[in-house]
């Protein structure tokens, strides 16, 4: 956890804002990111000694882009409702700096098996934050956890209201900010300028 891509490097927060209104979308997104990240790391690690240095970023991008498109197509075919919810943000995994970052920083120097572990680790680290943010947003924004209503009807009748800010993108910003704050305060990390 010391090198979590979101809470330490604050990478890839674009999709973290968009798809974390509910836990189920965050879980599917996590699976997609883990899959794309591990496979792209492995593929690039296999090719690492053959990729010409001049065009390495382009090669990495095309591998990642192809994988993302395949993930998107598979989701459309087998989980249509979910792909409607994720919409354009699944495609935006391409622009997620974590994927390219790990390919460039790790897979280019390490063996496929290590790159696979690195991809899975980073993907899960990213996903754990997504799911944590989604947990709070769904709980306060909809009163449910993973689709199951946890805030009883009586509480609503007593005047409780769901928090609309949590469903809006700024809600993810605040939750994410608080998580980063708590994590950094706990680990004692801070930006050194």
């Amino acid at each position: 956890m010391g090198e979590n891509p979101i809470s330490i490097h604050v990478l890839g927060i674009c999709s973290a804002l968009a798809i974390t209104t509910k836990i189920d979308t965050a879980v599917v997104m996590t699976i997609a990111v883990v899959a794309v990240l591990s496979i792209s790391n492995v593929v690039i690690s296999f090719l690492r000694n053959n990729i010409p240095n001049k065009v390495r970023i382009i090669i990495q991008m095309s591998v990642i882009a192809s994988l993302v498109i395949i993930a998107d197509q598979v989701l459309k075919a087998y989980m249509y409702d979910m792909s409607k919810l994720l919409g354009v943000f699944l495609g935006l995994i391409i622009t997620n700096c974590i994927v390219l970052g790990r390919a460039e920083a790790y897979a280019m120097q390490n063996s496929p098996s290590k790159a696979l572990l690195d991809g899975m680790g980073n993907g899960l680290g990213y996903g754990s934050i997504l799911i944590a943010v989604a947990f709070f947003r769904e709980l306060f924004g909809f009163g449910s956890i993973y689709g199951a209503q946890v805030i009883a009807n009586q509480i609503y009748l007593g005047g409780y209201e769901n928090n609309g800010l949590m469903i809006l993108s700024p809600g993810a910003f605040f939750i994410l900010g608080l998580i980063v704050w708590a994590h950094r305060a706990y680990t004692g990390t801070s930006d050194k300028h």
Partner: peptide
Amino acid sequence: CFIFFSYPS
């Protein structure tokens, strides 16, 4: 502002 966006109804 928080109230405004959180409990807008």
